[in-house]
Amino acid sequence: MGALPFASLGIVTAVDLISGPDLGYLSLLAVGPAFASLVGGVRRTVLIGAVALFLSLLLALYSGVLGDRQSNMSLISIIGVTAASILATVGRQRRERELASVRSVAEVAQRVLLRPVPRRAGHLRAAVSYTSANAEARIGGDLYEVVTGPGGVRAIVGDVQGKGLEAVETAALVLGAFREAAHDEADLRGVSGRLEKALNRRLSGEEFVTAILVDADPCGRLTLLNYGHPPPLILRANGEITLAEPDDTAPPLGLASLEVEGPNPHQVDFASGDQILLYTDGVIEARDRSGRFYPLADRAFLLKDDDPEAALESLRLDLVAHVDAPLHDDAAMLLLRCRDN
């Protein structure tokens, strides 16, 4: 893209020299300054315009048409297009600065929002991974949290519909409500009810949040509530890998207008050495260059490392290698492991 203006000037110059002055290709030199507004700054645009003017004068002198109507029209066209390109470049740079500023604010807000999870939470060990999407994508609303309460450990992983600051704001609302409710409510249905109330005061239309809530009690049992979210992976100490799919499905949080009851609690055994991996759809929807999705279940053996953080980092690096390019959606993963002591 950066070489396009100079390439166009070179092509027009060559064509004009070959065809001669009769066909009148000089005015096409204005294509160079026109392309210049696509990338680079004002100085570069002025430079390309000056080069186009110089080539126009040189070609007109070489062909013996300097001062003729054709030559004058060529000079006027180049000057006019260069001036318009300068204005377009100024406008493009202003929009780029505004976009960078908004993205920077969103990134900072997201980092403040997504605090590091505790490495040890009750009878669990925890690790989290968050991989941002590419620079062209807008900030997403992936969220996660682990809270240790009186009755055990509670966790959430969710994904807000949409992108940008509004998604970050909604994620902040969900996490704030979850952090309070996880301590106060006796069961997960009470926690999810508090989340629904908080979201329904803010969301409208078809906005929603997919989420999965986890309650891990010290007696070796997990209780799950899945609100339209990808099912987590259960990795047993003996190497068995299963999907914790609920018996019934439920719509995402924030869709109270559908008047559908939430999911029934789904319980699974969770003994010493077992692990549960919660993740957002940015993980399983990550594609390689051939369009194949990331095979998370097939790659879960990478989580065998004794250190949960090292294990999760191995999986993250494998995900990035699979895509072999910047991700198109944020990818969050939360790994919880039942420890011996």
Rank of each mutant, 00 (worst) to 15 (best):
L4I: 11
P5E: 02
F6I: 11
F6Y: 09
A7S: 12
G10C: 10
T13P: 03
A14F: 13
A14M: 13
A14R: 12
S19C: 09
S19K: 08
D22Y: 05
G24H: 04
L26G: 01
A30V: 06
A30I: 04
V31S: 10
G32M: 07
P33W: 12
L38G: 06
V39S: 07
G41S: 08
G41L: 06
G41I: 08
G41T: 09
V46F: 07
I48E: 02
I48N: 00
I48V: 15
G49K: 03
L55N: 07
L58K: 04
L59W: 01
L61N: 05
L66W: 05
D68Q: 10
D68M: 05
Q70V: 14
L75H: 10
I78E: 06
G80D: 04
A83S: 10
A84D: 03
S85P: 02
S85D: 06
L87Y: 09
A88P: 02
T89R: 05
V90E: 13
R92A: 10
Q93S: 13
R94M: 12
R95G: 06
E98D: 14
R103N: 10
R103S: 14
A106W: 08
E107T: 15
V108D: 11
A109V: 11
A109K: 06
L113S: 09
P116R: 09
P118Q: 07
P118W: 03
P118D: 06
R119A: 13
A121M: 04
A121W: 01
H123M: 06
L124W: 03
L124K: 01
S132V: 14
N134C: 14
A135H: 15
E136F: 13
G140C: 11
G141Y: 02
V146Q: 00
V147M: 04
G151C: 03
G151P: 02
G152P: 01
A155Y: 00
A155R: 00
V157L: 06
D159P: 05
Q161F: 12
Q161S: 14
K163V: 13
E166K: 12
E169G: 12
E169P: 02
V174M: 03
V174N: 01
G176L: 05
F178C: 04
D187G: 04
D187C: 07
S192K: 01
R194T: 07
F208K: 01
F208N: 00
V209Q: 02
V209Y: 05
T210W: 04
D215S: 11
D217N: 14
T223V: 10
L224D: 02
N226D: 15
Y227R: 04
P232H: 11
R236Q: 13
E240L: 11
T242H: 07
T242W: 08
P246R: 02
T249F: 09
P251V: 15
P252F: 12
A256H: 06
E259A: 14
E259S: 14
G262R: 07
G273T: 07
Q275W: 03
I276S: 01
T280K: 06
T280G: 12
I284N: 01
G291L: 08
G291N: 09
G291R: 11
R292D: 12
F293T: 10
R299Q: 15
F301N: 05
K304W: 03
D305K: 11
L312Q: 02
L312I: 12
L315F: 09
L319C: 11
L319H: 10
H322A: 08
D324N: 15
A325G: 14
P326T: 14
A332I: 06
M333L: 15
